[in-house]
Design a protein around this nucleic acid. Structure first.
Lengths: 199, 199
DNA sequence: GAAAATATGGAGACCATCTCCATTTGTCAA
DNA sequence: TTGACAAATGGAGATGGTCTCCATATTTTC
């Protein structure tokens, strides 16, 4: 049953992938990230991503059958970076502080990449399964942070990390609100204060 | 400067609207609500809404130039019902309880209308401005509830109602998570506990 | 360096969206 | 009631984004 397939279905590895193929793939991802940051990703013809990256439409569709699958490739990079950060924090700070810092930094990060945030929010709501892989990784990081804080006794144990994910979801999804930054900070504040054992 | 335009740009009023026009409009909205509840609204051709409602595509497009504008019409009904509820609660309960009850009931309501919630969440993320009117009404209701609770001294005054909206946004947007109901309840718990004056 | 495997790109098929207008339906005054 | 005008209809067809297909080009292997 498809035994020897490598575990990591990552960007690298999995299949040798011919030289020109990898080059084109990377070109596409790079151009996509650019469009994400500009917030244009959903406003242009999908075919144009190919043109802008300097490849044919056929090539685009072979590497990324759907708009979402291309988005996933970019998203995965983002999430991986965030999770590395989470692990580093967890190693150097008390659990509660690590969680707080991570959440605050997350807002910073989204704030610094508005266009990207907008795009990802759209994706999350649109075709639910598209970001599944990347989202799972992020969720794992949050879950670990929360679990550690619970073990420390710094955080109540009757609400799961899922609630925190939902709140983050809201922060990302509401990217277009006028007072976004301040409100996002407030949400984090509410979540963190709410997480302390009540009374 | 466009002086005598009626204040209420509502479903009713505004313009007399011929008899058959109103009938068709209502047919479209009814069929749309049906599709919302089934969760199919974004999976079918927009033209098919017309066919299903028994009107021509031209009629559909005259009444609702975009898919989103049709959604807004349904959304508006939903929101209005919720806001009535909010006002009733505010009149009969202490502010803090009114807020808590409203938020809990909101989750109930979304839970009972999964398909509709899914659709609305998609809309929120997609074309930000589409639900503007309805969202503003809902936000006003939440803002009032929070403001009253703050006045009572039951709730801290250093975080705005916007944060609560964001959290709700997250709850709606994350409709497809496996443990949605439990997690949504947890988010409300976090928000409510976080809103009590810390320490 | 020749054959096999792999990848390319863009022309054109396909299909959802939206427009346009000849026709139908409703309204109102006489 | 009827005529005349305004309002609304509906669906055929233009438009334009998405995706497929395959003759050609490139890389790898032996």
């Amino acid at each position: 049953m498809t035994a020897d397939k490598p575990l990591r279905a990552d960007t690298r590895a999995d299949k040798p992938l011919r030289a020109d193929a990898r080059r084109n793939r990377d070109l596409l991802i790079a151009k996509a990230r650019e469009l994400f940051d500009a917030g244009d990703f959903f406003d242009i013809r999908f075919d144009d991503v190919a043109r802008l990256a300097g490849v044919g439409t056929g090539t685009l569709y072979r590497h990324f059958p759907t708009r979402e699958s291309l988005a996933e490739a970019v998203y995965h990079g983002e999430v991986t970076a965030l999770c590395d950060r989470a692990r580093r924090l967890q190693a150097t700070l008390p659990a509660a502080e690590a969680l707080a810092t991570f959440l605050r930094d997350m807002v910073d990060h989204i704030d610094a990449h508005q266009g990207l945030a907008r795009t990802l929010a759209t994706l999350m709501a649109d075709h639910s399964g598209a970001l599944a892989e990347g989202s799972r990784v992020l969720e794992q990081a949050v879950t670990d942070l929360v679990a550690a804080a619970v073990r420390d006794g710094a955080v109540r144990d009757d609400v799961g990390a899922g609630a925190v994910m939902m709140a983050l979801h809201g922060i990302g999804a509401a990217h277009d609100r006028p007072g976004w930054r301040a409100e996002a900070d407030d949400v984090i504040t509410l979540v963190l204060d709410g997480l302390r054992r009540p009374l």
